[in-house]
Design a protein around this nucleic acid. Sequence first.
RNA 1: GUCCCGGUGGCCUAAUGGAUAAGGUAGCGGAUUCCGGAUCCGCUGAUACGGGUUCAAUUCCUGUCCGGGACGCCA
Length: 568
Amino acid sequence: MGMLDLKREIAEILAKLLEDMDVEQIYGMLEQPPSPEMGDLAFPCFKLSRIFRKPPADIARELANKIPISRYIERVEPVSGYLNFFFKRSAVISDVLKQVLTERESFGSSWEGKGKTIVVDYSAPNIAKPFHIGHLLSTIIGHSLCRIFKFLGYNVVGINHLGDWGTQFGKLIAAYRRWGSRERVERDQIKELMDLYVRFHEEAEKDPSLEDEGRNWFARLEKGDREALELWQWFKNISLEEFKRVYRILGIEFDSYAGESFYVDKVWDVVEELRSKNLLKESEGARIVDLEPYGMPPFLILKKDGSTLYATRDIAAALYRKKAYDFHKCVYVVGATQILHFRQWIKVIELMGYRWAKDIVHVPFGTVSLEGKKLATRKGQVVLLEDLLTEAVKKTLEIIEEKNPGMENKNEVARQVGVGAVIFSHLYSSRIKDISFSWEEALNFDGETGPYVQYTHARTCSVLQKAGYTPGNSFDAGLLDTKEEYELAMALYRFPEKVREASGEYEPSVITRYLVEVAQAFNRFYHEHPILVEDEALRAARLALVDAARIVLSNGLWLIGLTSPERI
RNA sequence: GUCCCGGUGGCCUAAUGGAUAAGGUAGCGGAUUCCGGAUCCGCUGAUACGGGUUCAAUUCCUGUCCGGGACGCCA
């Protein structure tokens, strides 16, 4: 079935009446009126005023007289320069429900991405540091984008570009050799690595020569020194184990863990290529690419001791990925603090002559602070992600014990709802906004939250089960003639366009907020109208609406990385 | 210093340049003989400030103020 697109339908009708404008132009102008009483779709006539040399109100009035009544259009009303369309509710509800109930878990999806690959680079925690709430945003935004792209038919490659290379590992090795022991690292794992790292920085304040020692060990690592490599691999394995435990809780899997170290042997080709393309300049002993003509500071490629920087590895990684995946887009979910860095290296790729530089997309997001203060691993001023998730699950379990003590798989449901609450709240506002973490807010499950949407979904399941509902039965959508039923159906109708919007803006919050909209519409309907009524025809129609709502909630929750338990 | 991002009721958040600025939370007041009260309904309350562009500005331009961030040898 083709997608039910009422906007296009109306754009086409208008295009026939307005010779100077094409369907696309009109499509872009059509908007949703501020309130349902004003109609279902509005066409503002102000811009036409200049073309026709008439007041907008006159244009709207004249158009209103010419609009043919069709399957979906019941009437049109000119109101102060707007042409407001009122749909034939029964026809719209009927077609929306038919479509949702036919397509089911694929409702809202499409094949626009067929044959195209999108690489999504996300999460990317640093080895030897604990996984804290600062890593949460990249992880869940990236994961949600992966699901959204998949839903739209793209082939998606999710990459965890681990921070597993760099001077910090030289420092860690130096610290381990000075103060560490195998037993303690084996016992305390990442915590011990963290302590060593912190101690290094403390001691380096007093004795700056330590910094050189750390850099020296990193240089040995880059040269393939056996002892350095062994220690590094060991530390990396310890970290990976911890990270994978967190990813399992979040329900996330990656297609590749190729981190920075993977590109170490590939950077020299990049350096050589930059040299041969005359992009490399010597400056203060280091090698840079001059970006002044583009209004940016110089971009450092090689340090004066000849070792590489993460910048170099970013370029190598992009070149490698283009070759390996021939991506349509390569998306980087990395914090807003790195906007300049991305602008710089993408410009360098462009200067190297690669036209696909425009397919590299940086998706920035805001900074997480702790009750207004900066997160600082070294000062121990962090909230571990695992602690947050554990607390959220614990609190959920308490609520379940209170409200639904007889439930069977309490622990599993508490896990899904608790983790879901954390993900949901972090995907609720526009990603660019900074987040000030507070325990109180993080554990508040009232209002526009994950539990609210999951609760609503569970409620749909509960009604359907009580009714002994089986999908596929025929129903008369004409019986759904109330305001609440229509508004719910219209909310469901909007799902596919919300998915497209979320994808186009790389913005999962579009889906998150939309889910609240649907849940609110459902709960209003549920409260106003009994579903399990005597009248069998009405009952069948309302059950179909409930099932459709259930499907959309479930599909939408999946897109932001949440589950849809049938009971909570 | 240069550049980037943000500023909307007490707090959090929304609004492709469009109509009466939309929700949540907190506060107050209501709703359950019936499908799950983690629900629903009502009340109170907001675009930092000045100028400009426009028929129309929360949105675009400009200046000021406030908060965050980036700007060579970390990642």
